[in-house]
Design a protein around this nucleic acid. Structure first.
Ligand SMILES: [Mn+2]
Ligand SMILES: [Mn+2]
Ligand SMILES: [Mn+2]
Ligand SMILES: [Mn+2]
Lengths: 162, 162
DNA sequence: AATATAATATAGCTATTGCTATAATTAAGG
DNA sequence: CCTTAATTATAGCAATAGCTATATTATATT
């Protein structure tokens, strides 16, 4: 499977097909609704692995939000069946929660590895991956993986050294 | 400047430095607050270029939201000084609005071109770029540009054909 | 066991982003 | 000009995501 040369690919118009465009925006509003769930559940999973507990105060400190904000969000995650709370002992993940956490972490790590391979600094990798991860579809994720495995890194090196 | 081999780069821990992590989340909440402004203003600019007018109904159709939703958002964009309204003649961009639109469009196009160069399908490019564009920092954007200019495309082709 | 500390809960507020239903207004066509 | 159709405005509602201030409760320490 050979890609067409970029020169022969018709450059994108300013305005895509109206239906395609509105579907894109819809898909992104949908993705935006899942961002907090993914970030919380992934973080809870990380905290549990590191210290066997995930308390509201730790979550709040890691996210940079207040404890009542976390309390409210956890109530939603409980209602959605992703976490369970042990009173004054923090929260734990349900099966469903663990599944979301693992998928989120896998995506997150691939995006991070990809940005690193592109030569982005560690600080920018941290910040940008935290946002980008939520908007990378399966196909794009696969392309990122290919690029990492395939040795994008060496390629960049070759470019950088002329 | 030669990059270290990926094998020698210490794999990222599950949990980054707490301060760095909370700063990442803060930065992303900040970025999230700008998403709608960027999407609206860029779309208005595109509509104006295409048809010399940008009406609420057209914007609503393109975004896949209701007209009152657009009306409310336009009030905010007017208050923020990005657009002006001509009654029953749609909206137009101020100088500030045009600047935001041009920057947003430039970023959007680079992200699209980059995903295309990676071999992502046109549909996925449309959807994913619409989200990713808002979370790509200057440094990552520069890396995308380098990769496009540098001939990432040919590199992918080489990979794909073994 | 009493107390101090840490953790969580709750109340009450604000801003944002969406919706439906309906009213009001303007622009266009006859 | 008058009417109709298109466009915009407005009212009222809901969900989400944040905040501060304060109360409550559990855990840990003495
Ligand atoms: Mn993540
Ligand atoms: Mn994230
Ligand atoms: Mn855009
Ligand atoms: Mn966008």
């Amino acid at each position: 499977m050979i890609l067409k040369s970029p020169r022969t690919v018709k450059s994108s118009q300013s305005l895509p097909d109206p239906t395609a465009q509105s579907e894109s925006f819809r898909a992104n509003r949908e993705a935006r609704r899942k961002v907090l769930v993914e970030d919380y559940v992934e973080l809870i999973s990380d905290l549990l692995e590191e210290s066997q507990e995930a308390r509201q105060v730790d979550i709040a400190a890691r996210l940079g939000v207040s404890q009542p904000t976390v309390a409210k969000m956890l109530a939603r995650l409980v209602a959605d069946g992703f976490v369970v709370q042990k009173p004054y002992r923090g929260v734990f993940l349900t099966e469903a929660g663990q599944k979301v956490a693992e998928e989120a972490r896998a995506r997150h790590r691939i995006v991070e590895a990809f940005l690193r391979a592109l030569g982005v600094s560690e600080e920018s990798v941290l910040v940008d991956a935290e946002g980008i991860e939520h908007y990378v579809g399966d196909e794009t994720l696969a392309a990122f993986k290919r690029a990492i495995d395939g040795g994008l890194h060496d390629f960049i090196n070759r470019l950088v050294t002329r």
